[in-house]
Design a protein around this nucleic acid. Structure first.
Lengths: 343, 343
DNA sequence: GACGATCACTTAACCGGGCAAGTGAGGTCG
DNA sequence: CGACCTCACTTGCCCGGTTAAGTGATCGTC
């Protein structure tokens, strides 16, 4: 089956292809009667304009890019990215934009992908995730003048617009909640230490613990995998003066931590309270269900996509603060047993 | 920063753009010395050919499409799709193909996306997931002559090539294993009943149970979500003559089932054995770790992508059988308690 | 009734590559 | 020595849209 082109529509309508272009794009230059006839014919023969030809004649590619820099085994189990993509997609497909996805091995590969996409005019703009401190991708995108929205921050985004949320405030809420329950020995299993939001959380954790007088509040770095969550939890729970509550930087590690506690014969929440970051269905699936810091991730992605489309349209876009994650208490948190409450 | 075009390279090299095209595409028509000079200049000024221009002049779009027809909350938590995408990506990016992703609401929307992609020449081919019985997408893709590889089967793929694995055999292995442990009352929580592989598994389950003389082997349909897994498990475990073993069609529901058992005070595996389909890290995270039917999903995706590229190249491709999922026994399966063993 | 304005188109150039056909220089051979 | 061939390019058209500029018909106006 041959794909219909604008020339086919023009021939059937008995007009020039210029007229068809004006008619289908709502431009002036054709009468209303002719426009309707052309639209009907286009509909009838199933014409949709070649994105390549459109992109070539100066218009947009009608596509945005997303490069993910995480190994497959983490991408798979972390609900975050798929939920983000769902939200991004909802906005893009409503405007007939395509999403081009690429999984990359490291930051250099990611930068190479951006340069290639830019040179190939394959995308009109990109979303960047997993912002790092002094991120090398930012100056490259600025230099290329490739429209981009950073998902993350605040700060370290250069002149690029961003969509961010206040992780520090969310973390403070979680710690204050645990302290209100009576916990004094709180530990945290953090995400990849290079990521900006991990650093933000770590600093907030240290600050709030200092302010509340919690002395041995320690953050164990990890890589978001269940294995690392298991390892970190084992270490924390085997140490003298083990914590009575642990905050995990993602849900996967929190679930892993729960399993370790059960394996070691510790009751959750009796002997150990657990708080997870990112409240995916996973948190509600396990027993006890996990207290979690949740937020609407599809909405987060949707905001990023919307701002990117605005930036592509050439309008100025600044930093957008999304809602702060809020704590949903569930069965995994409770006051520590009395013996534990006194240091 | 202006994007370099082939004309920029030609000007710097002092040749025509035709010569540059020949040089960069390894075609004969330029001397080796000139070719190297041109390649060096292209490298230096960071030239990559516009994908739009390339696509327009008859070559490929260098992109393949993947439409996912599942609601966001399922896509997020099911590791299957992200792992599949990782595998697909590994093959595509090695050949500089882009992956265009779209999340759609239903089958009609998905078909509309294929028609649009085809008309826009946006992709050279597509991968289709979640094959149904007498799938309506198949004849559409055949009519459009859009290269496609079906991920699923066997059967119901029309003349389209496919990549599939023998779910029936895997299911039989799981049931035989449970029977060997001494189980006689085995139930199954199935996936979406419309999907072909669900039907394949259901038929295999009924057949093998009949052959082994297990009388009340029941399949409860569900939708792959944790909530449905919870509901189905509650119903199964509350019924008189409750099963001593349950096979779940995905890992999420298995984890949910485990939580229900714990909540109802049933010991796993003492009172209830659990087998999960798709062995994601999730299965190893919970306590006890789940016995699972695992397979290499990234490899599955990679095979599909490879066959799609072959089909795009115009070479004939048939059905490809991937390895059968194999059972990894873990802590969630054991012989039923003696009182249960006798019917 | 001549003139300018407006309308409803058409024409043609352009985007950036690919590629068939053309060209001129140099070499081979009868 | 001229015919022929090969090599190493150049020229020019094509892909399928968009859009500025051009054109002819109709209309209103003085």
């Amino acid at each position: 089956m041959k794909r219909p082109t604008i020339a086919d529509v023009a021939r059937r309508a008995g007009v020039s292809k210029g007229a068809v272009s004006y008619a289908l794009n709502g431009q002036p230059g054709v009468s209303e009667a002719t426009r309707q006839r052309i639209v009907a014919i286009a509909e009838e023969i199933g014409f949709s304009p070649s994105s390549a030809a459109r992109a070539l004649s100066g218009a947009t590619a009608a596509a945005v890019g997303l490069a993910l820099c995480r190994p497959a085994r983490i991408l798979g189990i972390e609900p975050f990215f798929m939920e983000l993509i769902s939200g991004v997609e909802a906005v893009l497909s409503a405007r007939s934009y395509a999403l081009t996805l690429q999984v990359v091995a490291d930051q250099d590969a990611e930068i190479a992908v951006y340069r290639r996409w830019w040179g190939e005019r394959r995308v009109d703009g990109v979303l960047i995730c997993d912002l790092r401190v002094d991120d090398r991708r930012v100056p490259v995108l600025e230099e290329l003048r490739l429209p981009a929205v950073v998902i993350g921050g605040p700060g370290h985004t250069g002149a690029l617009p961003s969509v961010w949320c206040d992780d520090a405030a969310a973390l403070v809420e979680a710690v204050e909640y645990l302290v209100a329950l009576g916990h004094r020995r709180i530990a945290r299993v953090g995400g990849l230490p290079d990521l900006l939001h991990t650093r933000t959380r770590t600093e907030a954790f240290e600050r709030v613990c200092r302010e509340l007088g919690l002395v041995d509040a320690v953050t164990v770095p990890s890589d978001y995998t269940g294995e690392e969550g298991t390892r970190a939890t084992r270490r924390l729970l085997s140490s003298p003066g083990r914590p009575t509550a642990v905050i995990y930087d993602n849900d996967v590690m929190a679930v892993a931590g729960l399993a370790v506690a059960q394996e070691m014969g510790l009751a959750v929440p009796g002997d150990l309270s657990i708080v997870a970051w990112d409240d995916s269905p996973l948190c509600r699936l396990v027993h006890p269900p996990l207290t979690a810091l949740g937020r609407d991730i599809p909405a987060y992605g949707a905001h990023a996509a919307r701002n990117l489309l605005t930036a592509i349209a050439g309008e100025p876009v600044g930093a957008f603060q999304d809602e702060t994650a809020h704590l949903t208490p569930r069965g995994s948190t409770a006051p520590p047993r009395s013996g534990e409450r006194v240091r």
